[in-house]
């Protein structure tokens, strides 16, 4: 679904990503893991067009999207949930969801907001409240719901567990897994919390100092004690 080939990105003289290649197969979760500063967020920002790579190619469902503007990408089925939740705090819950609908492909199925309220009853109760008044977990639900409004093919999730209680993290990861299994969504998940991420992922990509160390099946990765100790911290 999403194919990344030889991607290199630099901040001035600092190389953030070097020759990164891997694939996100349709209907799977691919987790990109690594320490702070490994280049995980840079990777997502480059894929979604917020940054320009020096070299490499990104294709979405066969379409080259390497240097496409982010606002065009959402119509091709790409949804990026940025780090730190990305709710627009000054807008209401409902307005945030309505914004999500904008990115829907012209031929995509309309997702009624009502379905979101069914899926996230807590959000439904607070639809007129400012998104800034939600808790961290509710915000994460909101941004995921918002990206679903666009009926995406690929969901890029940046550190969804950041700052959330373990119980909430588990809920969110369950939700992501369900979406993949039931709707055939493809997810590129970036996480520092490697243990939780690997528990729901199909594939794991370990990133260190901007380079891919290894790409393996999630189970195998979780079982590799040396790798875990060296790069994943558990």
């Amino acid at each position: 679904m999403l194919d990344i080939q030889g991607l290199s990105v630099a901040y001035g003289p600092v190389k953030a990503l070097q020759d990164v290649s891997f694939e996100v197969p349709t209907g799977t979760i691919t987790a990109v893991l690594g320490a702070n500063g490994a280049g995980k967020t840079t990777l997502l920002r480059t894929v979604s067009g917020l940054m320009r790579p020096q070299a490499g190619r990104v294709t979405l469902d066969g379409t080259d999207i390497t240097r496409m503007a982010p606002e065009k990408m959402s119509r091709l089925g790409m949804a990026h949930v940025p780090e730190g939740r990305g709710v627009i705090t000054e807008l209401t819950v409902e307005e945030n969801l309505r914004l999500g609908e904008l990115g829907r492909a012209r031929n995509g199925d309309p997702v009624a907001i009502e379905r979101m309220w069914e899926m996230f009853p807590k959000l439904g109760d607070r639809r007129a409240a400012l998104a800034g008044s939600l808790s961290g977990g509710e915000r994460q639900m909101l941004v995921i719901g918002r990206s679903l409004m666009a009926t995406p093919k690929v969901l890029l999730l940046d550190e969804p567990s950041l700052g959330l209680a373990p119980r909430i993290v588990a809920q969110i990861f369950d939700l992501v897994r369900t979406l993949v299994d039931e709707q055939g969504l493809s997810v590129l998940l970036v996480e520092q919390n490697a243990r939780s991420a690997l528990s729901i992922a199909d594939l794991g990509v370990v990133l260190n100092l901007g380079r891919v160390v290894t790409t393996q099946e999630a189970g195998a990765l979780a079982a590799d004690e040396d790798l875990r100790h060296a790069y994943l911290g558990f």
Partner: peptide
């Protein structure tokens, strides 16, 4: 930035 990601 978020607006752009949403297709605005």
């Amino acid at each position: 930035e978020v607006a752009r990601l949403l297709g605005v």
